[in-house]
Amino acid sequence: MQRITKGKIEEAHATGDDGEAARLQEALSKSENELADKLKEIKQLEADLKKKPIEVPATVTIEKVPEAIEIELAELRTKVSKQANAEFKI
């Protein structure tokens, strides 16, 4: 963009169109200022990212086993352990 605009500014000066050259120079200056502002903003955002880690809320899902199932599991475990003990005695 800058090359094209600088070339057009030189061309406008060469043809004697000072109004067009001034307009193009102003557009070029505005673009350069916007570019500088955006580069500063990018550097600031990069610094912010490096400075502070991204906070992600921890989602912990705790599933509660129903009490009836816990009781049944306990009974089954005792049965299995009794059967295992009985088999070793034989």
Rank of each mutant, 00 (worst) to 15 (best):
M1F: 09
M1H: 09
M1V: 09
Q2A: 10
Q2D: 13
Q2Y: 12
Q2M: 04
R3C: 02
R3D: 10
R3H: 07
I4L: 12
I4N: 11
I4H: 07
T5I: 15
T5N: 05
G7D: 07
K8G: 00
I9Y: 05
I9E: 00
E10H: 11
E10Q: 13
E10V: 02
E11D: 08
E11M: 07
A12K: 00
H13C: 04
H13W: 08
H13L: 15
A14Y: 08
A14F: 03
A14W: 03
G16E: 06
D17R: 14
D18M: 11
G19Y: 07
G19N: 11
E20N: 04
E20G: 07
A21Y: 04
A21V: 02
R23E: 06
L24Y: 02
A27N: 10
A27W: 01
A27K: 11
L28D: 00
L28C: 02
S29D: 10
S29V: 05
S29L: 11
K30R: 14
K30N: 08
S31Q: 14
L35C: 02
L35D: 06
D37F: 04
D37G: 00
D37W: 05
L39W: 03
K40G: 06
E41C: 04
E41D: 13
K43Y: 04
L45R: 04
L45A: 09
E46P: 01
E46K: 14
E46I: 10
E46T: 05
A47C: 02
A47T: 12
A47G: 02
L49A: 13
L49S: 01
K51P: 00
K51Q: 10
K52W: 12
P53A: 14
P53R: 15
I54S: 08
E55T: 14
E55Y: 12
P57F: 13
A58H: 10
T59D: 12
V60A: 14
V60E: 14
T61M: 06
T61S: 10
I62S: 03
E63F: 05
E63A: 09
P66E: 13
A68H: 05
I71N: 13
I71Y: 04
I71E: 07
E72A: 15
L73P: 01
L73K: 13
E75H: 09
L76H: 03
L76C: 03
R77Y: 10
T78M: 11
T78V: 12
K79D: 13
V80K: 09
S81G: 00
Q83D: 12
Q83I: 13
A84E: 05
A84Q: 03
N85A: 15
A86C: 06
E87V: 06
F88R: 12
F88V: 15
I90N: 13
I90S: 12
I90A: 12
